[in-house]
Design a protein around this nucleic acid. Structure first.
Lengths: 343, 343
DNA sequence: CCTTAAAGTTAACGCGCGTAAAAAATTAGT
DNA sequence: ACTAATTTTTTACGCGCGTTAACTTTAAGG
């Protein structure tokens, strides 16, 4: 075996009997050398352990194999799950994914993009903070680096957007709730950070009107990303004021619903579709914990697998050819209703 | 303003009137140049935007400013929270933290360490998978790179370990449950991946015997990191078999408890300390969601702030002097009981 | 004002690899 | 087996910065 460590490609060239430029080509793209040469290289690679110095490689390459993944809030298991999927797919394709979280802070979001720039990434998957984001700053970044936005759309920014079809989410939940009981009111934050929230409200109004029911919207106060707490406090307020119209609530997202259900439980309000229940609650996102709420949460699920795979495919296309899409591409995926006990 | 972009330190030297070696010193450590020079540099830095090429810097430095953060499972909000804290502290200290998740996979854990090695990190914060980890592999890595283990201890591996004092956790919960009602049985996985689980079981037995009660342990089946599901299935089994001894349950950790509570709710078993309640349930970790279970979960909390700050401090000490600790240092932090509605 | 230690400048080399150009070797096709 | 096309080798330069050595300038103290 190669007892003496190999320090650089020069040395690996001499022990393997392959010239350095050929080795360089191989490490750049193994298929770019003849099969027999490739075999000899890989054979040598087994006997001696050598890996090109990643810093030297990245310095001299115009474009690296780095891929940035930026999410707004990693402590949200929804984003953790998406990020995990994207990460896995990038690794499988031979890229070097690096995960960043903006932690709900627009300044940090920009700083991350700034750091990312110095990593000369081949591409970036970005889920922006949303309303709070510095649109101009992000736009500038996207001009320089191939970027696929996901989850939150920012109109006109980035080469592509992959997200969920909010209308599909809401129409499924509203239609189900309506045909299985009374039409729902809509429970949401007054000033949602995420643009999906606005699209969901609009969709709710649209679908309700289409079905011939008056939309009823409850907007609660609260800032930041502690949605469970906001939902909890908002629900308590609503119960105190007895301001809930009807017996069916559709929460804008699962995290709000988790807080809502906790408040309902504390107030002794039984939630579910049984005869002994006062209230039905449903929501959107199929948050990893929605299975374990009390009662378990009826919700509308993203297809994590499909969303992440399609986003990454788009990014790869884009990285090969920045102009692959004639115009900014938007891809929205429909959702799937998950019936559980809460509605 | 510097209309023409500055491409390297050479150019920045000429426009700023400072020699390149001095600039190099400055970027390495701003305090290593005289205050007046520092002022001139920073002034020039405002007028022209220039940042040293990170790849060139890292290539030529024997040690980088990179810090690796490796957690076993990022989709667990507990680790997301800890990681966030550590990340923030590293950034504040001028380091470049990179976050990795082993996703519960020992092979991936090793691959991450392998990649990390080529990043020439100044130090690594590693929360190992635990029982499943390839101890030899991790040990080898820790020989080469200053590493602080956290959360899960691997005896003798790494320069230091920072974690929670499991005995403190369990003794607080057991004592509270005992003095406020009947002594608890202990609900856990039969083959826990995490070594803390074993320490907690031992502590439970010890504290119970010390108080003069027979320990009663319920061990449920299940593999992997889907603790909520495992707790849920395990609890359903227990309810079906009516094999629960007594009316008080202490879960090994909050994620199991979340599943347990979901099962209890489904079985119509009322949990809490009221007279109308059949069961009390408590747990450990103060998981971010334990506030929103039904009923809200009485638990024992880590001091996230203290644990993360002390771990990072240790790593910094270690990075300055690899031999700062004469022998492997272990630091355990006590816990704080959080009374909520479930017990 | 003079002495000295401290800090900055100049010049030059090295890090490990990408890449270009010209020459040599290998393969493929007839 | 011979020519043409493809691939590999040789040689050499460049990337941006760390670092060293010898030299010059600056600041501090009597």
């Amino acid at each position: 075996m190669g007892m003496n460590k190999i320090r650089n490609m020069e040395q690996f060239a001499s022990v393997s009997g392959i010239s350095r430029p050929t080795l360089s080509k191989y490490f750049n793209d193994p298929t770019s050398v003849r099969a027999t040469t490739r075999g000899r290289i890989e054979e040598a690679l087994e006997r001696f352990d050598y890996r090109p110095n990643i810093f030297a490689v990245n310095q001299n390459r115009q474009l690296t194999k780095n891929v940035g993944i930026v999410v707004p809030y990693l402590a949200d298991p929804f984003f953790a799950e998406i990020a995990r999927n994207i990460e896995r797919r990038c690794l499988a394709a031979g890229f070097w994914p690096t995960l960043f979280s903006s932690h709900g802070d627009p300044m940090l979001e920009l700083e991350i993009l700034d750091s990312l720039r110095s990593l000369k990434p081949a591409g970036v998957m970005l889920a922006p903070l949303g309303r709070a984001s510095d649109k101009a700053g992000i736009e500038k970044f996207c001009k320089d680096v191939p970027t696929v936005l996901f989850d939150s759309n920012i109109e006109g920014v980035g080469d592509a957007f992959v997200g969920s079809d909010n209308h599909s989410f809401v129409s499924q939940s509203v239609q189900y709730l309506t045909r299985s009981g009374t039409p729902p009111c809509f429970f949401e934050m007054r000033n949602p950070a995420n643009p999906n929230a606005n699209k969901r409200r609009k969709a709710y109004i649209e679908v309700m009107e289409q079905l011939g029911f008056p939309p009823q919207i409850i907007q609660i106060e609260g800032e930041g990303w502690a949605f469970e707490e906001i939902g909890y406090q908002g629900a308590k307020q609503v119960f105190r004021d007895k301001s809930l119209p009807g017996d069916t609530v559709l929460c804008s997202n699962d995290r709000l619903a988790i807080g809502f259900l906790a408040a309902a439980y504390e107030h002794g309000i039984k939630v579910g579709r049984g005869d002994d229940c006062e209230l039905r609650v449903a929501s959107h996102d199929d948050h990893p914990f929605s299975r374990y709420t009390c009662p378990s949460l009826t919700t509308v699920a993203h297809d994590y697998e499909v969303v992440s795979s399609r986003s990454v495919e788009m990014l790869f296309t884009l990285m090969e050819d920045r102009n692959a899409f004639k115009s900014r591409k938007e891809k929205l995926f429909p959702a799937r209703l998950i019936l559980r006990a809460s509605a």
